[in-house]
């Protein structure tokens, strides 16, 4: 069965985290996922633009939805924030009386129309529901055996539960199950469903860094060798800001943080270099040594 998607990588995968874009392309190839990139699609608003203008946010997203409709494909993202922002916009357009007409009145001038049938999914959910954990397990060439992996979900892929609908936000399991299918051992810790703090890094730096630091520290205390996240915005705090977070909470951290496609890629036997593992600020070298020693 071929899986084909209108691919929405999101700005972070094409900006601050190019290794995410790069690793997803490789992993999609291995798993037979056909990604047709939405090259002209705009930003989802990323939760930020909603602080200024909801109609604008809905219209941005309706523009993207109309492009996917034209292709006749469901949308696939590799970003918790994108999938959340798009799904929230989709729900608002569906549930607010008159909203669909309103966004279409704007789109009409651009020669576009949104029919109201967008389907939006995340790579994590595709692994779970379309590929299936059994098949994923069969594809594993280099099991992550013995590695203790802390899942970090990110807010937008969990809440609000009514709109996201895959995990119970209080006890999410999807990422845990993927980790297990790849041969790793998921680490249980309370921070996994909490907020990384990234959205207020500029507004309240101390609080933002403390959030990130606390979750990383909890994972370390539970014996994690690494952390994995389906959200590149979380990655920007968990990895990029990790050394400052460590200073903020007054203890060393040093926990490598991988993007979900990188973790899958490793288990599928793709070498670390093309997966972009050397691009993280927290070095993965020690981790890779440990992983290969166990082989």
């Amino acid at each position: 069965m071929s899986l084909r998607y209108a691919y929405y990588p999101g700005c972070v995968a094409k900006g601050n985290c190019p290794e995410l874009y790069q690793s997803m392309a490789l992993v999609a190839g291995r798993l037979g996922i056909d990604l047709v990139e939405l090259k002209k699609a705009p930003c989802t608003g990323a939760g930020v633009a909603a602080s200024q203008d909801l109609l604008l946010v809905d219209t941005y997203n309706a523009l993207t939805f109309s492009m996917a409709e034209e292709m006749g494909l469901p949308i696939l993202t590799i970003c918790s924030t994108c999938v959340g922002s798009m799904r929230q916009a989709e729900a608002r357009i569906k549930e607010t009386p008159g909203r669909l007409d309103q966004v279409n009145r704007v789109l009409r001038d651009q020669g576009r129309r949104y029919g109201g049938s967008a389907q939006i999914t995340h790579f994590l959910w595709v692994l779970l529901r379309e590929i299936g954990l059994e098949r994923l397990q069969r594809e594993v060439r280099r099991p992550l055996a013995g590695l203790r992996i802390a899942p970090f979900y990110g807010c937008y892929i969990l809440r609000p539960a009514g709109i996201m609908g895959v995990d119970d936000p209080d006890h999410p399991t999807s990422l845990d199950r993927v980790i297990r299918a790849l041969g790793g051992e998921p680490v249980e810790y309370t921070g996994k469903s909490r907020c990384c703090g990234f959205p207020i890094l500029l507004e309240n730096e101390a609080a933002s860094l403390a959030m990130t630091g606390n979750h990383l520290a909890e994972a370390v205390d539970r014996g994690a060798d690494l952390m994995v996240t389906p959200c590149p915005l979380c990655h920007m705090n968990l990895d990029l800001q990790q050394s400052r977070a460590a200073r903020q909470i007054g203890r060393p951290l040093d926990l490598p943080v991988l993007h979900l496609p990188q973790l899958v890629g490793l288990a599928l036997g793709i070498p670390p270099k093309p997966l972009g593992l050397s691009r993280h600020l927290v070095s993965v070298r020690g981790l890779l040594k440990r992983a290969t020693r166990r082989e």
Binding site: G47, A50, C155, Y156, R159, P160, A161, P169, D170, R194, C195, G197, F198, P199, I200, E203, N204, A207, S208, M211
Partner: peptide, 16 residues
Amino acid sequence: GPGGIWDCTRCMECVH
């Protein structure tokens, strides 16, 4: 001001 509306991370915990 500090501790006000701009400090919310939009994590949706409260909504949940």
